[in-house]
Simulated assay, not measured.
Amino acid sequence: MFILKQRLVPAFAPASVLLLLLSSVPAATAQTQGTPDNAGTNKSQNQSATADQQKNNVSDRELAAKIRRSVVSDKSLSMYSHNVKIVVAGGSATLKGPVHSEAEKQAIGQKAADIVGADKVSNELTIKQ
């Protein structure tokens, strides 16, 4: 409780006014702002390899980090490509997520193959329509 000009005012009053003001502001979504929203694509993909299956051993973490650095450092790739899922388990890499073209899919697959070996890459990237 606050004392305001010799009257007791509930402590929640300022918060309720703020809540009323915020509720009248329309919520902005990722789609209306023009940023990629991969949520639907990610949910629909086969859940065979997910980030929670990434092992916490040093060698798998280092391999995943090397692949990620290689992908992100290539500025010719789209933002979708920079955000693909890279899961490394037992020295094998699984690549998942949407990319803009077959060329991006192949480029990311090759970057992973250069690091872990071509026979240890499962390229499950999809081309966004």
Rank of each mutant, 00 (worst) to 15 (best):
T29E: 09
R61T: 13
G40P: 06
L77T: 01
R68E: 08
Q47K: 15
N57Q: 09
A30D: 09
V58H: 13
A30N: 10
D74S: 05
K105M: 07
K105V: 06
S92N: 13
P36K: 06
E62Q: 12
V84I: 12
Q33W: 14
T35I: 12
A89N: 15
S59K: 11
A107G: 00
Q47M: 08
N83Y: 03
G97L: 06
K75F: 11
D37I: 04
E104M: 05
A64H: 01
S70R: 02
K43H: 10
P36C: 07
S76H: 02
I108W: 01
T94D: 10
I115L: 07
N42V: 10
K66N: 07
S101N: 05
S81K: 03
E102P: 00
P36N: 10
V72M: 03
D37W: 05
A112V: 04
I108A: 01
N38H: 10
S92V: 11
S78E: 03
D52E: 15
Q110S: 12
Q31R: 13
I86T: 01
K66L: 07
V58Y: 10
A27K: 14
S78A: 01
V58K: 15
R69E: 15
E104P: 01
S70F: 00
S78W: 01
S48T: 11
S101C: 05
G109D: 04
S59T: 11
T35P: 00
K43V: 12
S70N: 06
V72F: 02
A93K: 04
P36W: 09
A89M: 14
A39D: 12
I115W: 04
V99A: 01
T41M: 12
N56V: 11
K105R: 12
